[in-house]
Design a protein around this nucleic acid. Structure first.
Lengths: 198, 198
DNA sequence: CGTAGCATGTAACAGGTTACATGATTCT
DNA sequence: AGAATCATGTAACCTGTTACATGCTACG
């Protein structure tokens, strides 16, 4: 298994232990990364993903809850069941989990992937014709404009509240979104020009 | 099954037939789209994906060959086995396939997805520290610079050879890549500034 | 008092990829 | 002759998502 192999070349402190955490599953590190900042319930993890990571990552309950179980089994995460109230389960990261997270962070990035159905449809646009393609561009533009507003709000918040330790890291990822979305909007204009005139 | 349902609201000409083509599998339409332009072998389809679509899509032999079989069974694609030579199998689109492709092209886009491991690592950068993060940005920058060179070559070729029917559609997708990659490079500078000064 | 949101979980499926096996042909 | 590329295919795996089931709690 590649699990062991990966552990060998980094995790000295724990390299003899068995881990059922599949090292390649990014959802592991998404969870560890979020818990590294603060203790959270599974539900809250989902919300963090949908809010803070939405621009470049996604994740569903169907992967979050089972992964939390595995992480607990491996001692990377601890659970604390609330006795009072609704009995929600609050997860927090352990030292072992932090080591695993750090190991992953140090490794080179394996894959950055963009899968835009919109571009696929545009590429095959000859069969659809100009009008249809313009509609796709329109829809794309509207979606991006909405998202861009959100991102610009995030930037404003981050530039006001600079007390956070991780402030700069959040800021650069949000700025990435802002820059690329602005480029998308410029491209929408350009694409329309190419299709209409020229 | 959602197959039938989807067929109902569009493919009048064939709506009574059974299709094993899973309507949601994008690989179906990637193949149909490519074959709509020219007859190809499975191997050549893979090459087209890796060259022309690489910026916004990917696909492996493990999905291409089985999908071709299904498309043939459903009459969306015809195969012709070369008797002489290596005996390669050349696939071409049928009228039915073209209808299916057009149907899909007309539907609104379901999902445009960006999954950048780089951004995930940057977001959790507090645990790694500035130096490590700068390395990730550096790697990202180098990869993008290489890709951008390729894309700019494509643009030049497309702007010279304007005879192609689908020329404009290819051009706008390539320009999308160029615009966003240039935005990425500007962001790399910005991100470094935020991390170093400020 | 009903409904929106909080909260946890699972089974079935989807939509691929990876790694391997096999062999022909072209290039040097 | 050997390597690179052309060419086809498959079985096992991976990494999720979707859809459902369940129930609590805060709010108007």
């Amino acid at each position: 298994m590649s699990l062991r192999h990966h552990l060998m070349d980094g995790m000295q402190a724990y390299c003899m232990e068995e881990l059922s955490v599949a090292i390649e599953k990014k959802i592991n590190f998404v969870i560890l990364g979020l818990l590294n900042h603060e203790a959270l319930t599974g539900y809250e993890i989902k919300k963090r993903i949908d809010n803070s990571l939405r621009f470049f990552w996604s994740g569903s309950f169907g992967s979050i809850y089972p992964t939390l179980d595995v992480l607990v089994q491996d001692g990377c995460v601890e659970k604390e069941e609330e006795t009072s109230g609704r009995g929600k389960i609050i997860y927090s990261i352990t030292e072992k989990g932090r080591v695993l997270l750090r190991e992953w962070l140090m490794k080179p990035v394996k894959k950055d992937e963009l899968r835009y159905e919109t571009l696929l449809k545009l590429f095959f646009g000859g069969e659809l014709g100009r009008e249809g393609i313009l509609v796709h561009i329109q829809n794309f533009e509207e979606k991006i404009k909405k998202e861009l507003l959100l991102l610009e709000m995030y930037v404003q918040n981050l530039e006001r509240v600079q007390n956070e330790e991780d402030h700069k890291y959040y800021l650069i990822t949000v700025k990435f979104g802002v820059e690329t979305y602005r480029a998308y909007l410029r491209w929408c204009e350009e694409a329309r020009n190419i299709l209409l005139h020229d």
